[in-house]
Simulated assay, not measured.
Amino acid sequence: MLSEFARDLQAALANQPHAISPKYFYDAEGSRLFDRICELPEYYPTRTELAILERSVGEFAALAGRGAEIVEFGAGSLRKVRLLLQAFDAPARYLPIDISGEHLRDAAAILRGEFAGLEVRPVVADYTTDFALAPHEGAGKRIGFFPGSTIGNFTPDEALVFLQRAARLLQGGALLLGADLVKDPAVLHAAYNDAQGVTAQFNLNLLARANRELGAGFVLPQFAHYSFYNAPLQRIEMHLVSRARQAATVGGERYVIEEGESLHTENSYKFTVDGLRALAERAGFRPGPVWTDPDRLFSVHWLHAPPGASR
């Protein structure tokens, strides 16, 4: 039986244009490379968002109230969620949601060791689909946490659907959302084309992963990392461009990639503050406070979820 990765890669290679979800970047090696990206001088999003979170976490805690549940969409940087867990008033529990069970278990074990008495309940699920969370008797507001501008990896339609699902899941609570902002294209270009070539390695690792897990036979030097800002669509696009006519095999099927063809591996949409607030409102949220850095590179939004029946 083929894995989901194999099926999606087959579909990407069989269809034109070739495109695959960026979620497949994040095997162990891809996660290691992304951690390196976050430390690069050109890559502003992580350090800028962290500075906003550190400066404003007391305001988040006041908005959340006592005994909040923290629901993180994706088991992301523990450094970020630690800020919330340390600042919030007696949080009832932490529920990280991710498709990677191993990553979740590791994160949960670390946080259980650091926060005695905190209930940490990992949820193995795809947070882009519908799923339910067990109620917690006596808990306060349910606060969603979606940092890193991961919302930008969705198409506008997908982002709306995700926010609609989040609004239903967080009824009566709120979503704390990080969103990268529209800015000088030169700044964006540098962030995704770093001088050390780490982003290129990260992009190419998707093919290396296909070789390791699926025996695809991609020849990595025959692909070039290509990333650019598509201003009319307000998004960074990341591609792997074939330098020559070549072939790969996935699940017993052979696929030919022509010279000059690309595999589209990621979109990273950028937002205006007003545009993100309008999108959230369409999804059912009531936009609340917004925090940005002095250079307005990045934004963090408090979005009030609609009221609903008690959990």
Rank of each mutant, 00 (worst) to 15 (best):
T128I: 02
R121P: 06
T128M: 10
L181I: 07
A174Q: 04
A134R: 01
A200S: 14
L177A: 08
A134I: 13
D126E: 04
E137G: 11
G172L: 04
A190W: 07
V123R: 09
A167G: 05
A125K: 13
A186E: 15
E119A: 15
I143L: 06
T129D: 12
R121D: 04
V182D: 02
I151V: 12
V120T: 09
E137W: 02
D130S: 15
V120W: 04
V182M: 04
P122R: 12
P122M: 09
T128L: 13
G173K: 07
L181G: 01
R168G: 14
V182Q: 00
D157A: 15
N193W: 02
P147Q: 09
L133Q: 07
D130T: 10
H189P: 00
L160D: 09
P185C: 02
L175A: 12
T155H: 12
A125V: 08
P122G: 00
A191F: 03
G178A: 03
A174W: 05
F146R: 10
T128G: 03
K141D: 00
R121S: 14
V123N: 11
K183C: 03
D130L: 12
D194K: 09
L163M: 12
E158V: 03
T129S: 15
V198R: 11
E119S: 14
E158K: 11
R165E: 08
D194H: 07
A200M: 13
A125E: 14
L177D: 09
Q171P: 02
V124T: 14
Q164V: 06
A132K: 04
V198K: 02
P122F: 13
H189G: 00
T129R: 14
F162R: 09
H189V: 03
T128E: 10
L188F: 09
H136A: 15
V187M: 06
P122S: 13
G173V: 10
Q164G: 08
G197N: 05
K183E: 01
G152D: 09
P185Y: 04
E119M: 12
A139E: 02
L169S: 10
E158G: 15
L170P: 08
P135M: 09
A190E: 04
D184S: 01
P185R: 06
P122A: 12
K183F: 00
T128R: 01
G138Q: 01
N153K: 11
P185I: 08
V187W: 02
T155R: 07
E158P: 04
S149A: 03
Q196I: 02
L176N: 05
Q201T: 03
A132R: 02
